Computed example of a mutant assay.
Amino acid sequence: MTTTSTLTDGILYLSLAGDLVGSPDTQQLLAAVDEYLGEAVTNCAVDLSSVRYINSTGIGVLVSLLTKFRSRGGEMVLINPADHPKKMLALTKLTNIFTIAANEAAARQQILLAAS
């Protein structure tokens, strides 16, 4: 899995690619996010459009990230999950918990809406 992160207007944008499964990659992702949380970043958008496969560990990582941001009064939005992640989110009924946006602009709108 590869991860790209950018910080724009106080929103952390993460772009994930490959397979989101248990590995050192997921631990590095969580550690990187913790660094941003230390800088008082409370909102995040995670682009899942390039994630081919996600397992229960990957789902757990997403839930962990959501919990981190919401516990700080922020929000996390998933952007355009690819087919397999979308099916897994629906199967686990996490589509009721996660906010899902079609693109980065829609994710930004959802975050700003949640903040108001």
Rank of each mutant, 00 (worst) to 15 (best):
Q27F: 00
T8S: 14
N55C: 07
D9L: 04
Q27K: 04
A105G: 10
L30Q: 10
G38T: 03
A17M: 07
M1E: 00
F98A: 11
S50L: 13
V21Y: 02
A31P: 09
T57N: 01
L94R: 02
L20A: 03
A32Q: 14
L12R: 06
V51F: 08
L14H: 07
L14M: 08
A105S: 13
D83V: 03
N55A: 09
A32P: 01
S64V: 05
S71C: 08
L14F: 08
D83I: 13
M76L: 15
T26A: 01
A105Y: 10
A31T: 15
A107S: 13
A40K: 13
L91H: 00
Y53G: 06
S71W: 01
E75F: 05
T26M: 00
L16Y: 07
Y53C: 05
L66M: 13
T57S: 14
L78G: 15
L89C: 09
G58Q: 02
M88P: 08
M1A: 12
Y53T: 13
P85H: 09
L37I: 07
D47N: 15
L48R: 03
V46E: 03
Q110C: 14
Y53P: 05
K87S: 07
K93E: 11
E104R: 14
K87P: 09
S23W: 02
T95D: 15
S116G: 15
A102Y: 08
L89H: 02
G38E: 03
